[in-house]
Design a protein around this nucleic acid. Structure first.
Lengths: 119, 119
DNA sequence: ATAGTATTATTCAACTTGTATAATACAAAT
DNA sequence: ATTTGTATTATACAAGTTGAATAATACTAT
C-alpha cells in the first residue's frame, strides 16, 4: 500500500506559487480602499476564496518595505479598542505602479489562450 | 529633477511575482505535449506574451526536481544536431497534480470578482 | 580534431514567506 | 494602579525559488 503524496505536493506547490503574489493582493486591497492590517488580511483571504492566506507579519513587512520607497503610506485612526490603527493606502506612485503592473499583465489575466490551457 | 524609479520597481516586482509561477507554466507546456527544454522555454515565453521569461537552467532544475518525485519523466529522441534530446512529459501523478492545482485555483483564475478588482 | 548542441552540477547572491520570539504602545476593564 | 487585549515594530532563522556564472560531460556532424 503506497502513500498518496499528492496532497503534500499540492500544498508545497501552492506555498511556492503564492510567493510574490502577496504584493499584488495587498495593492488590490488598498486600491479597494484604505485598510489596516487586519482588514487587508481579511480582504485577501475572502477575495481569494482562501486560496491565498497570509500571516500578518508578512503584511507588515511588505507594507513597511513599500512605505520606505513611497509606494504606500498611512493615516492614523482610532479603532474600537487598543492603540491607533494605521490605515494604509497607495500613494500616487503606488497607484501608478499597480496600473502599470496590471497593464503589463492584462493579457495574461484575461487571455482566452490561457483559459484554454487551463481547461 | 527626480529620477523616475517606476520602471525599476515594476521589473523588480515582476521578477518576484514570476517566482513560483514557473512550475505552473512548465506543467502547462508539458500538458500541451511532450517537449524538450528549448521548446518548453519557447512555449512559455510565447504563450505568456513574454510576460514570463526563464533561464534554461531554471527549467532544468525544475524538471530535475519533479523527475525525482515521479511527476515528470522523459523520453530520448534524436534532434537535428547534437546529442539526444530529452522530451519531457507529465506522469500520471503529474497530470493529477496539475488537475488538482487548476481545480483548486479555478475560481481565482476565472472569477469575475477578481476581474473587477483588476479593472 | 573541431565546433556545436544538449545536459547535469555546483555555487553565490537576492528575495520572499512562515515561524518564533521579543519589545513597545495604548485603551479599556478590573 | 494593575491587568488584559489590541496593534505595531523588529529581529533572526529555515526553506524555497530564480538569476547568474562557471564547469564538466556526452554526443553529433563537419
Amino acid at each position: 500500500m503506497t502513500k498518496n503524496i499528492l496532497p503534500e505536493l499540492l500544498s508545497s506547490w501552492e506555498e511556492t506559487y503564492k510567493k510574490g503574489q502577496l504584493t499584488l493582493w495587498i495593492f488590490l486591497a488598498l486600491k479597494d480602499g484604505q485598510k489596516y492590517v487586519d482588514e487587508i488580511k481579511e480582504f485577501i483571504e475572502s477575495k481569494s476564496k482562501n486560496t491565498i492566506s497570509c500571516e500578518e507579519q508578512s503584511l507588515y513587512r511588505n507594507l513597511r518595505k513599500y512605505q520606505h520607497i513611497d509606494v504606500v503610506t498611512f493615516e492614523n485612526k482610532k479603532g474600537n479598542k487598543g492603540p491607533d490603527r494605521k490605515y494604509y493606502f497607495l500613494t500616487k506612485m503606488g497607484t501608478e505602479l499597480l496600473e502599470k503592473f496590471i497593464e503589463r499583465n492584462i493579457e495574461l489575466f484575461f487571455s482566452t489562450e490561457i483559459k484554454n490551457l487551463l481547461k
